[in-house]
Write a protein that binds this DNA or RNA. Structure first.
Length: 988
DNA sequence: TCATGCCAAGTTTTT
DNA sequence: CTTGGCATGA
């Protein structure tokens, strides 16, 4: 008999459904949590509840997330709620790192050498491509790798193979099998496990030796929709003793299918654990109503998905924008101008920190980075190139790996000629083959050869031998010797940092960089210095046991102790997609550029999603359109207040090819505004309300406006076609590269008319005059709503009344599934067993209401689940200006807690109210261009140029490191790893 | 025979 | 801006 629920403090910050999820007594709990519904908050609260209230020991709880970032955030939040540093004892991490921990501790039991290393992406690739090359049949290494990884990730090969199966195999499959076996043998020789192996072997371990997890009372899984088969197995095995599992996930946000994530796992779970308590969290605390509606419109095109509501807590907000631009660079320039405009119009209530630009692929960042750089806006790039993948860093890492694992032939092969030692491909290949043929590692062959103990079969000319001996073997031996000395009780300390520094010195690496990269050796060297400080941070954290990843002792089970720093550092590097984000001491506001994948779980007040065209999203190389759509949905639902999608009309690379608006938004493109909103007082006040911030007084905002500032989004034509003089024919085939296209659109005569012909591409054949009219009238007069929209509002109001009635009825059961909402299990069963749609949605085109403005999303298709919020019911078209916009009726207090009640919701750090002195931005729009480029992406970083630094428009096509310290360029450290931390390097 | 330098071509998402 | 292929020189 648990005490009354309401008394526990952890429950006070939760809504009904969340509270039920947190305090559920069921052994297995499935929490279905839409975006912004407080998923993480709920999960952390449940952890705290299970420990504090139910009484499990922290060390008997496993919390598995999908990414390192999520794990870290989770740990931090649990720590805050739990206190006493007890969160450190929880077995918490992403799947891979938890599996690695178990294998390090108990891997011996299943024959894993305790000193195993982790084969990262590059390792796997090079091993496989070598195997493929050796075969007579030409196999695509990439495909082979994907096949192998899929095979491992599926995890269901536990079922004994039927003996006759071999015969049925096609020749291709046999080749693949062979590659698989060779690959595994190779990994074994080098004592490596690849990412999938970590999971596969851990499953093996826990299956054979359940005692390793005999202490585990309960298991919690975050982002469950991203688990794959093997992770599902692992989850079950973690929980095998007591079978208490809590999962949190959202099928709509499953974007890792390409990594074998299986949405079906949700169904598997419900089937495998019949008593599972299903709870939906449908309140959205993040985004404005308008953003949610459009996001829902997008995701609802997927007719097979599990229907789930998204109930707004906030007011309507401004209409999301779908902007058409001429080219990618115009798009980037527009984004910059729009960022500026918002921030200035907000009187600096909003800062660069509040802005995110989310991309389908990292390569899209080029133009945007350059535009941001040009105008002196600092930014950080998340995703894309990784710090540890930089050439110079990778080389040093490979050296470290060889020091730790001399038998790692692949790592050695990569560095044997870095710096140049006159060893070429042929020699390397020969060495590798010799190593495979004998029982010796390449390292052993080399050392023996140089010592004269054994002559290598590979031909090694004298000069080469000498360079290897002096340049490679000697410095490495020196380091190993020092390590051994340090291991002795009275030995001088020789830490990781010493090791790296010694290595850099012994290899004369700085000189090597100067020789091989004369243009940017300084940056690369700076990267290495940063790497040294990173290593230092890691060691320090380890000593302060911030990174406490030891497993609890279990009676009668002996653990291998992992006391060495080096292996843990290497594992950390391989498994971590990002290094811990240090606190932003300097607090320099930066715009975030991120891939959509990397943005999952995060939120920003202002979100831009550029390149919304077919080929980008959905990506041309993707074969799962539904997943691509979900990706767009994830991107859109990151936004709190302002959401901008944009689409360049012409692609930049393929000579003037036309881009086609993404088919995900094409059907509802009229629900978007065609340009950025007018940021008058009411709009800004609403933004402030959603964000829980205070808007500076109007006169202050006004005073801070730079002269010549354009308060509207009118610098770029709403219809970029108009600036093209030769657009008469408009035939698709015409690809001649006419020069005028590259010109910036003229700002004057922007209001020149648009005509139906130009609209045709976007509005299609069903365009009516009325619609056409509204589309430009609305954009010309922000705030004016067309009659069509009014009509929509009235229908919506009726629907809303009905919906509300229904909502009243089911309110008592709000925590459970709505009455007419099927169980997930039922849903999956019905869709998988029958072809008929259980909830048929009209085809998106015909279902689109003929009106512009906000169409209630699929009201008829989904009665009772999409209650129209009161805001729309009472909405009246404003008259002329937004000033008369009716304020939103107060939400029912019990149902709609204000933002303050959920202080922990935001995934991003709590943003302080900005109290900048207003006189700061008196004359020029560009904020003082200090160190722009602290985070410059290496791809866009060029040599510092002094021209045009203050101008911002001096014809630079790439960001220049504007506020450099002294005369040295700032290193283009990829701030993915340490987004906020200022450079720690001291340069002379 | 092999190392090296030059030129050309392509570029999803991540543990 | 990195990788792969080719020609040249040792």
């Amino acid at each position: 008999m648990p005490p009354p629920l309401t008394n526990h403090p952890i429950l006070s910050s939760l809504n009904d459904a969340q509270r039920r999820a947190v305090s559920s007594d069921a052994a297995t709990v499935a929490i279905l949590a839409g975006p912004g519904s407080g998923k993480t908050h709920t999960l952390t609260s449940r952890v705290v509840w299970l420990i504090d209230h139910v009484g499990y020991r922290p060390e008997d709880v496993i919390v598995a997330t999908f990414t390192v970032k999520a794990a870290r955030k989770m740990k931090e939040r649990i720590g805050k709620a739990l206190g006493h540093g007890r969160e450190k004892k929880i077995v918490l991490g992403n799947f891979h790192s938890i599996a690695r921990r178990y294998l390090a501790a108990y891997g011996r039991k299943i024959g894993i050498n305790q000193k195993f290393g982790i084969a990262d992406d590059g390792d796997s690739r090079s091993i496989i491509s070598r195997i493929c090359k050796r075969k007579e049949v030409t196999l695509d290494p990439v495909a082979v790798r994907a096949w192998i990884s899929k095979k491992k990730a599926k995890g269901d090969e536990v079922d004994a193979k039927p003996p006759g199966k071999k015969a049925a195999k096609t020749a291709g499959e046999k080749d693949l099998e062979e590659c698989y076996d060779e690959y595994q043998a190779h990994l074994k020789n080098s004592n490596l496990l690849d990412f999938d192996d970590l999971l596969v072997r851990c499953v093996e371990l826990l299956r054979e030796f359940p005692s390793c997890v005999s202490n585990i009372q309960t298991v919690l899984i975050d982002e469950y929709q991203d688990t794959n088969g093997i992770q599902y197995e692992l989850m079950k095995l973690f929980a095998q003793r007591h079978k208490r599992i809590t999962i949190v996930g959202d099928p709509d946000q499953s974007i890792y299918g390409w990594r074998s994530a299986e949405i079906q796992n949700l169904w598997r779970m419900l089937k495998d654990f019949p008593g599972t308590d299903e709870i939906s969290l449908e309140q959205n605390y993040r985004s404005s109503d308008a953003i949610l509606r459009l996001s829902l419109l997008v995701i609802q095109q997927d007719k097979k998905r599990y229907q789930k509501a998204l109930k707004p807590v906030h007011g309507r907000g401004s209409r999301p924008v779908l902007r058409r631009l001429k080219s990618a660079s115009a798009e980037a320039d527009w984004i910059v101008s729009e960022i500026r405009r918002v921030i200035i119009m907000s009187g600096s209530m909003l800062t660069f920190n509040d802005v995110a630009i989310l991309l389908r692929s990292a390569s899209l960042s080029r133009h945007i980075e350059s535009a941001l750089g040009k105008s002196g806006i600092a930014y950080r790039m998340v995703g894309g190139k990784k710090f540890y993948e930089r050439l110079e860093i990778k080389a040093i890492l490979d050296y470290l790996r060889v020091i730790y694992q001399p038998e790692n032939n692949d790592a050695l092969a990569r560095i044997i000629n870095v710096p140049k030692r006159g060893v070429g491909d042929v020699t390397i290949k020969s060495l590798l083959e010799e190593a495979e043929g004998s029982s010796l590692s390449v390292w052993a062959i080399l050392t023996k050869h140089c010592r004269g103990d054994r002559t290598a079969k590979t031909k090694i000319p004298k000069p080469m031998e000498q360079r290897i001996a002096a340049g490679l073997i000697r410095p490495m031996d020196n380091i190993r010797r020092k390590m051994e000395e340090a291991a002795k009780p009275d030995g001088a300390t020789f830490g990781l940092v010493d090791m790296i520094e010694q290595l850099l010195a012994g290899l004369n690496f700085q000189k090597h960089l100067q020789d091989t990269h004369p243009d940017d050796h300084e940056q690369r060297w700076a990267n290495l210095e940063e790497f040294v400080t990173l290593a230092g941070d890691f060691v320090r954290d380890l000593n302060e046991s911030i990174e406490d990843d030891l497993l609890p002792e279990i009676e009668g089970l002996e653990q291998s102790k992992e006391d060495e720093v080096l292996p843990r550092f290497l594992a950390n590097v391989s498994l971590a997609s990002d290094v811990q984000t240090g606190e932003n001491e300097e607090n320099k506001p930066m715009v975030t550029i991120s891939t959509i994948h990397a943005a999952k779980g995060l939120e920003w007040p202002i979100v831009f999603v550029p390149a919304v065209y077919n080929g980008s999203i959905p990506h041309m190389r993707s074969d799962d359109n539904d997943e691509e759509r979900r990706l767009l949905y994830v991107a859109m639902t990151r936004a709190q207040s302002l959401l901008y999608l944009s689409c360049p009309l012409f692609s930049t690379n393929g000579n003037g090819e036309r881009n086609q608006l993404s088919s995900f938004v094409e059907p509802m493109h009229r629900a978007f505004a065609t340009k950025g909103p007018c940021f008058d007082r009411p709009v800004m006040l609403e933004i402030a309300k959603v964000l829980g911030r205070t808007l500076p007084p109007e006169d202050e905002v006004f005073k801070a406006l730079p002269s010549m500032f354009n308060p509207e989004d009118s610098l770029f034509p709403v219809d970029p076609e108009e600036s093209k003089e030769v657009s008469v024919g408009g035939t698709e085939g015409r690809t001649s590269n006419d020069a005028p296209r590259a010109k910036r659109p003229r700002l004057s005569n922007k209001s020149s008319g648009q005509n139906g012909a130009e609209d045709a591409q976007w509005h299609r054949d069903y365009t009516t005059t009325m619609e056409g009219a509204s589309s430009f009238t609305v954009s010309a007069l922000p705030g004016f709503v067309s009659a069509g929209a009014h009509q929509a509002a009235i229908t919506a109001a009726n629907a809303a009344a009905e919906a509300r009635q229904k909502a009243e009825q089911v309110k008592k059961l709000a925590n459970r599934r709505a009455l007419d909402q099927k169980s997930i299990l039922g849903f999956v069963k019905s869709t998988s067993s029958s072809t008929a749609d259980s909830t048929p949605l009209p085809s998106s085109r015909s279902s689109l209401p003929a009106q512009t403005g906000f169409a209630p999303p699929q009201v008829t298709a989904n009665p009772g689940q999409q209650p129209i919020p009161p805001s729309l019911a009472t909405h009246k078209p404003a008259k002329g200006t937004l000033l008369s916009r009716p304020s939103r009726p107060a939400p029912a207090p019990n149902e709609m807690p204000k933002g303050k009640a959920y202080p922990c919701f935001s995934s991003s750090p709590v943003k302080p109210d900005i109290k900048q002195d207003p006189d700061e931005e008196d004359d020029e729009p560009p904020p003082e261009p200090t160190r722009v480029a602290a985070c410059l992406h290496s791809t866009t970083f060029t040599k510092p140029t002094l021209l045009s630094v203050g101008k911002g428009a001096g014809g630079l096509t790439r960001p220049s490191p504007v506020g450099r310290v002294g005369k040295t360029p700032i290193a283009p450290i990829d701030r993915l790893r340490k987004p906020f931390k200022p450079l720690t390097i001291k340069r002379q």
